[in-house]
Design a protein around this nucleic acid. Structure first.
Lengths: 160, 160
DNA sequence: GTATTTGCAAACTTTTTGCTATTGG
DNA sequence: CCAATAGCAAAAAGTTTGCAAATAC
């Protein structure tokens, strides 16, 4: 079956190689925000003859075509997600790194107003909230070290 | 004269070497958001025996001490600015790359509400607006190519 | 059939690090 | 004096690219 992303690729007139089909499928099935290495891992599970260079070239191409969007949640790696119709922003759990999506309908208007006040027309925006899970009374949260480390998501040279 | 950043360093008990003093001064005098290479350039103008490794180590240290804040405006390089008392966000002119600062007092409350609704306590946030200068009627704006290229600020491998 | 795409490995950019020499307090 | 820091050059990590072989249309 043809994946959603594959359909979009065809619509854009892209030549559909086996590799692209596989990557498109991985992207269509993803509900998170994988980085290139993760995409590569998932893709090679389905088809071993895909190189990481192809994954890089493909995400770049799909981004240029407006099919994918590149995100940066800190940590030095670009992460990707399919372009959605409904625009949304992200909240990152600083203890676990988990990403929660939310929409900010009412918000965008406020942002537009801010931009206009500064003499600009708002083209796009990036809003990321960093938060900590609120626990019920008495509930304990993860170790203190994690709490110290998390706020600055992994500095570049993090060993795997 | 002791620069503002240098004073903060001393307060934090940091050993003030000549190099750090120079970098602190450069940071204190900056009104923009320089990346490491730019800091290095400015610092070596004042004192030639500063290595780029020291600049990297210093910004990292100052960031850990809460004296500096790391920003990412796209383009693959981290940019730095002294921690301000008044919190502010950024609007990036997608035609010129110029960064405009603004405060969003009323906004933060709204963000906190969003986080709370999702079950989180807001720790920090990142808000960047990307906009285009609004011109008076009849005024022309920069070439169309620039407009196409700008939204994705320079991909990694940009030649100097 | 031919223009595109792939794999591979090498190059490149940004950032970190090991080691020795230097220096601030 | 001695722990902390600097310089240098090499290593990492992420990403891009040149080129020959493979492939979609």
């Amino acid at each position: 079956m043809e994946s959603r992303i594959e359909r979009l690729c065809v619509e854009k007139g892209l030549k559909m190689t086996g590799q692209r089909r596989t990557i498109a499928r991985v992207l269509s099935e993803a509900t998170d925000h994988p980085d290139v290495e993760e995409l590569y891992r998932r893709a090679t599970t389905l088809d071993a003859r895909i190189s990481i260079a192809t994954v890089y070239r493909t995400v770049r191409l799909l981004e240029e075509k407006g099919i994918l969007e590149r995100r940066d949640f800190g940590g030095g790696r670009a992460r990707y997600e399919p372009t959605e119709h409904g625009r949304h922003d992200h909240l990152i759990d600083i203890d676990t790194g988990r990403v929660v999506e939310f929409t900010d309908d009412a918000h965008v208007a406020a942002l537009e107003a801010i931009a206009r006040e500064l003499g600009f027309e708002l083209v796009s925006h990036r809003l990321e909230l960093f938060g900590r899970r609120r626990r019920a009374a008495g509930e304990r949260r993860p170790g203190a070290e994690a709490r110290r480390a998390a706020p600055r998501a992994a500095t570049r040279g993090t060993p795997r």
